[in-house]
Design a binder for these strands. Sequence first.
DNA 1: CTGAAAGCGCTTACAG
DNA 2: CTGAAAGCGCTTACAG
Lengths: 348, 348
Amino acid sequence: MSSSTPASAVSRVTINDVARQCGLSIATVSKVLNRRSQARIPAPTQERVLEVAKELGYRPSYLARALANQRSHTIGVLYAPPMALIPRGIYESLMDELDRVLSARGYQLMFVRLTDHVEQWRQILQDQRFDGCLVLSGAPPAVVEMLAGSAMPCVLVNLKSETPLPSVQTDDFDGAVQVTRHLIELGHQKIGYYADVNEPHYSAERRHAGYCHAMAEAGLTTMEPFGGETAALAERLKREPGLVSAVIAYQHRIAVCLLQSLWRQGLSVPGDVSVATFNNAYPVEQTIPPLTAVALPTVEMGRRAAEMLLDRVERPGEAPVEGVVLKERLVVRESTGPVRVSPHSRRS
Amino acid sequence: MSSSTPASAVSRVTINDVARQCGLSIATVSKVLNRRSQARIPAPTQERVLEVAKELGYRPSYLARALANQRSHTIGVLYAPPMALIPRGIYESLMDELDRVLSARGYQLMFVRLTDHVEQWRQILQDQRFDGCLVLSGAPPAVVEMLAGSAMPCVLVNLKSETPLPSVQTDDFDGAVQVTRHLIELGHQKIGYYADVNEPHYSAERRHAGYCHAMAEAGLTTMEPFGGETAALAERLKREPGLVSAVIAYQHRIAVCLLQSLWRQGLSVPGDVSVATFNNAYPVEQTIPPLTAVALPTVEMGRRAAEMLLDRVERPGEAPVEGVVLKERLVVRESTGPVRVSPHSRRS
DNA sequence: CTGAAAGCGCTTACAG
DNA sequence: CTGAAAGCGCTTACAG
């Protein structure tokens, strides 16, 4: 086998082989295989083509077909490391739904890592391999700008941009209001908010704003958000028992860490302090105790993003730029409970 | 804009535009752009081509290039749902490394869900879009068979097959021996093994065999593996305090559940029972207490798999079928501790 | 050093 | 109803 012949191309059967075997032209074979209704081809001919194609194990070349059609039926999914290849948590089910919807309509997903090497992805985004693309949160502004200036249909997923591009976002303000009200209803008055300093995502300010809104609405005083390491926060909560009786953590990963840090300090949840968070993603159900969390509508996000994108791909220029904002839903578990009269005085 | 013109194709600049602008043929432009060393093209000509290409924003078409070269520089990653789109835990860093190595060598990854709809993926695997593929554990035997019968270069990742195909696996037997010995050194004698009934993976028997081996080696009696729900197991451990002083769980997810179930029963870890597991993946470091776990060499798995595949893609027919088996490494944390003389008699 | 031409494997007006 | 031919955008012997 010569090194210039890819193994995958060995003795490949093409449309020519099928045509020859049938004694027909490739044009006719193509029409039969693509079920062009306007070309009325007699049933017997059709059957023969189908039969021969099957017999020969003919598979149309994706590359040739895409080139001729000027359409690849491939959608790019753009994401930025250091996020893991597939961003953790919420994206699992979102991706699954995206893939489900798109593959049902004949499209394939291709993932693109947005590395520092700008030329690499810029190339990929412009080399005709995608019919459209989905941009996940975390993508650098340069990507969004480039797409805004190009004709490539795209939808931003869980991402906000200055440039007007279609997007699917979540109502984090409302989610934050929901979880804060939940704590207030449990009798909490001193409720802290634990921000994630590493997160430039749009939800950061919306969640904090929602928390502030719900607190003000109930006539409660908002505190300066906590930050830094969970260990330091837990230690402080231990030292200052009356500081807060509940903490809302910006997202599930830091909430999980916080539970561990509180455990190390001997503080019980929700006995000494209630903990609630955002993102109803693994492992919030398996923590000790299970975490009360605001669930993002991940499946719906995936579905809407996929549909919006396909609309643009299949009817370019028709769909207006729209920003969909989906509601979140509170899932109450055991990490939040009624406030105690005397905050962990027992222990301290 | 006509609906027959994809938005992404609008006013696309091709090699013809560049050639015309330069007053050269497309052949020459192609040579310059591909840096064909044998064709000695004068520096001034080269510069002009490069300049014009840049000025026009020319990007070679992936489809045309791949079709002409009979090489797509795209690698398929085959995985099976119900596994999440990206299988959880260990695959995050494995995928990241795969992608890193492959993209450094000019290849892109494309993910393919192996759904029930067999024709769909069979099509994709044979339509010339991939130069090779990686098959992740969980893929149905039908996929492996098909690949074994085709000329497509492929490597099985963390997957065992009847058919002789190149693969990267882990030494789960040895990993199990390591963790069992660790518990034995801590003084444990009654060590249980908690199997995952839903897991047909090859590691299942190897891990159990390694456990049996280490137990026998120390002259200890192996018990029948536990199974079923973690809640039931925890309840049983509560009822029968002397049953075991340590449990090895088949994988991290069930270990995380087990910790929660033990907590519900009021059993302390490692005070009442030590817990160890496999897969040093999120969230084993954040659990209460942090889990002792056998780490799979995920980064090395990714690297080896990528390299083995590229060898086959770039020099077809040369590389022999090989099965690489990589060592695992024990990471000791707080969920395992010395055996207690009187097993949680305090409580029961 | 450069280019005309064939080829990669399809699709699609268009003409018969 | 069927097929010759042009076209999708490249690469690569081959000839000059």
